[in-house]
Simulated assay, not measured.
Amino acid sequence: MTSVRTRPERAPAAVRRNGGRGPALLAGLGVTLVLVVLLAAGRGQVQISPAEVIGSVLHRLGLEIGPLPAAPQGENALWIVRFPRVLLAAVVGAALGCAGAVMQGVFGNPLAEPGVIGVSAGAAVGAALAIVTGVTVLGGWTVPVAAFAGGLATTYLVYLLARSGGRTEVVTLVLTGVAVNAVAGAVIGLLMFATDVAGVQAIAFWNLGSLAQANWSAVTLAAPCLLVGLAVAHADARRLDLLTLGEPAARHLGVHVERLRIRMIVVTALLGAAAVAFTGIISFVGLVIPHLVRMIAGPGHRVLLPASALGGAVVVIAADLAARTLVEHQELPLGVLTAVIGGPAFFWLLRRTRNRAGGWG
């Protein structure tokens, strides 16, 4: 008896039915991102209007169009402080949003995201070790590389511990991530105990999350990681769609599940570590944003991945704007602010999902 294998290029029906909202959502998020960037770049101790922000950019591009900042030091404020910070916020938010969407898709687990499964904590441990030991073998790349290695090692450790009988158990994955996060927190605490005051302050930066140290070098290092991660994840979007049907169905449709999962683990570690390496731990972005996007446009990853990236960028830029402007002459920790907002949002999502499913049992 001859079996017919279905071509893996055809997405599940549920994905196709929700695809109509995708272009509108992507366009709306793109416009929102531009508006938020203009607003964030102009707000601060030196006030610059959106028209002046646009004019400054156009003049830098060689186009004599639009007004330049009238405020003293306005150009320096834009190009030395504001733009690096806003662009790094966009890169970090996009990386976290995309990483969360990838994790949830590859594990079929709505609770999976870089923070829950330990990649953020592992990357922070790697960065903290580099800070405390004072290793500078790779120069400016030392801390980001240490963060990437820590995030990759932690993610793969969680994946291995969650495997049982050739498959990944959802509950085991979450519980393993909780345990690894606890161990990573203990290691960070020990490193803070063993180091000096400067080391404690540097490690505290990772725990609280901040964009205060943003610069053009950080943007140029983090942006390529985001682009590579997005490209690889988007290339596997249809395979991730098929994986939502379950492992047996995905295998029958031609998906090599283990290779896909390992590849996506590397992508998640790359994206998560690129974010954590320069800003510290920023909670809930990778968990809540893909949920919200999925509610609007459905589970299709061709829309879910870029929309989660755009949504994450918008949220982190807006949160950083609030962090540096809500209290005059002071800056709130970005990671704390996203947790304060993301925690209740995630609780609402849990309640909504439980009510629609008729309970967890």
Rank of each mutant, 00 (worst) to 15 (best):
E9I: 12
G300I: 06
I262M: 01
T338G: 07
W360M: 14
V314S: 01
L96I: 04
E328V: 15
P50R: 10
R82P: 04
A218I: 12
L61F: 15
L310M: 09
G139E: 07
R43T: 15
A249T: 13
A231S: 09
L227K: 12
G139I: 11
A51Q: 11
L226T: 07
G42Y: 11
A89Q: 04
P72V: 09
D236N: 12
H256I: 13
I289T: 11
R238H: 12
V288Q: 02
L68Q: 04
L287T: 02
R259Q: 09
C225I: 14
A127Q: 05
G185P: 08
V135P: 05
L175K: 03
Y159C: 00
V288C: 07
V171A: 07
S217G: 14
T172V: 02
L304P: 10
L270F: 00
T325P: 04
S164I: 10
A237P: 15
G300L: 08
L29W: 13
V125G: 05
A149Y: 02
G246D: 06
N18C: 13
V145A: 10
P114M: 06
G209E: 04
Q73V: 13
Q213K: 09
W206G: 02
G105Y: 02
L226C: 06
G42Q: 14
A223N: 08
G100D: 04
V15P: 02
R263D: 02
F107L: 01
G343T: 05
G100F: 05
E75I: 09
A27S: 11
N355A: 13
R259H: 09
P248G: 08
E331Y: 15
V91K: 00
Q104A: 06
L271V: 08
R85D: 00
R302C: 14
T268A: 01
V86M: 07
V137I: 13
E9N: 10
R259L: 10
E52G: 00
S3F: 15
I281D: 01
V293C: 15
R5E: 15
S3I: 15
G358T: 12
I282E: 01
S120H: 01
L271F: 09
I54P: 01
A130H: 12
A345P: 05
G359C: 12
A212I: 14
G140H: 13
A269G: 04
P12W: 08
G209K: 02
E64S: 04
G108S: 05
S49C: 11
A204L: 14
R82V: 04
V180S: 00
P299Y: 12
G342T: 04
M1C: 14
M192T: 12
E113V: 10
G246V: 10
G66Y: 00
P8H: 05
A345V: 11
G55I: 03
E113W: 05
M264K: 01
R16G: 10
R239C: 02
G62W: 03
P144K: 03
L173I: 14
P144D: 05
I265L: 00
G166D: 12
G30R: 11
L68I: 08
A24L: 13
N207T: 14
L304E: 08
S283V: 14
H59S: 09
P110T: 06
P67D: 06
F83K: 06
A233L: 05
V285A: 00
G22W: 10
G343P: 02
G177T: 09
N76Q: 15
